[in-house]
Design a binder for these strands. Structure first.
Lengths: 222, 222
DNA sequence: CTCCGAACGGACGATTGCGTCCACCTGAGA
DNA sequence: TCTCAGGTGGACGCAATCGTCCGTTCGGAG
């Protein structure tokens, strides 16, 4: 009965203030990651959330856990987008929808791209499974679009990774309104489309060659 | 005469061992930056060069100075590529040559992309001038290619920055043989070409969605 | 060969971030 | 209201990196 009583203390067995703090930490984490990148000090997140460091560590033992928690919702959206894409009748539109949705997500939630690409290194078997499944579904989407003749035959599913990786850099490096991102995506989608002429593009960016973005080197995390 | 005598001590007024060490530091810096990213500890560079930390700092007071020194040659190559591109008779080929050369450089010398994009924030007026000039020349190259009808009319010079930034991420993140890079560049160049059908692509990468590259967040350097 | 000062290497203090420990506080069941 | 398990915050010890200081070494002019 001891277990019983303690488990019922509150909604889901977690004390109300604990649950509230967890939420505050997640909000703060998203804000801080967006502002300072995914490597921002844990203490910064804690301060922003108005909690102590220990509290943060109790809820999320590792930085990875925090990152995963912070962007769980966005990851969910990606999975949903894939399902939606497969549901769209026109194969090309489905493909386009997927690419644009994921890129838009990367664009809107700064910090998410890196989190997304961090790729759940070890992760639970559940994550591995869902990821594997996403890959299979995407391949299906590609084959379907190619069969319809709208997607060029030599497009390879791995090209999606190339696109996302490249696009990631853009949105991470630019404090931008997203013009650069939209432009890159438009260029690429036009290349992906089987043998078409050029279509209109979104407006160009205000970048100059002597522009600001300092792309910090990327030490291999080991 | 004191100035005279000290200035003539050696080739260029610098002691022989000093000049030798400077060179060793530069070589080490390129190697270390390529391996661990541009944020690698200064001490690592010093150790690799077989010199003390102080020596490193004496030759290059700041990390920026070191980075700039290490990749001066590559920067020079970029400038030369631009001149070459303008010299090519066929405007499209000139344009293509430039994009491919710069991207190849980014690909070959890992660490250089970030350095290149670091964009000499303040830098000497000389650097500023040479950069401004590069921009002007590139615009000329673009206009010429557009006038010939080979480059799509809505290509904007700022798109080069978009390409380089995106491409930078790819080569920085992937320990790759360059397949992804070549593929991205090919896709983009096809999009840039005015109203053409698809042309053959380099082979796809071996990336999977659950792939390795961890794109570290990129805290705005401040 | 002798001597001077430029160049050298390594130690050092300062700064910053990480993750844990412990004493205090509080929500909620009795 | 009372009680206490679980929650909380901040201080702390540890590790990594930075940039400087200082005593020593060695190139090269006379």
């Amino acid at each position: 009965m001891t277990a019983e009583s303690s488990r019922i203390t509150a909604r889901g067995g977690v004390r109300a203030d604990a649950r509230r703090n967890r939420e505050r930490v997640l909000v703060a984490a998203r804000a801080v990651f967006a502002e300072h990148g995914i490597d921002a000090p844990m203490a910064t997140v804690a301060r922003r959330a108005g909690v102590g460091v220990a509290t943060l560590y109790r809820h999320f033992p590792t930085r990875d856990a925090l990152v995963r928690g912070a962007f769980a919702q966005q990851t969910e959206t990606c999975v949903r987008a894939l399902a939606e894409a497969l549901a769209v009748p026109d194969p090309w539109q489905g493909f386009q929808h997927l690419v644009e949705t994921v890129c838009a997500l990367q664009r809107e939630e700064r910090g998410f791209p890196a989190a997304f690409l961090a790729a759940f290194p070890e992760s639970t078997s559940e994550h591995a499974r869902s990821r594997q499944r996403a890959e299979r579904d995407f391949t299906t989407l590609v084959r379907r679009a190619q069969a319809s003749g709208a997607l060029r035959a030599d497009f390879h599913p791995s090209d999606l990774a190339v696109v996302l990786l490249a696009h990631c850099a853009l949105v991470t490096a630019l404090p931008d309104d997203g013009a650069a991102s939209r432009r890159l995506v438009a260029y690429l989608l036009q290349s992906f489309r089987a043998g078409t002429a050029n279509e209109p593009l979104p407006p160009p960016t205000a970048l100059t060659l002597r522009s600001l973005p300092i792309a910090a080197g990327n030490p291999r995390r080991q």
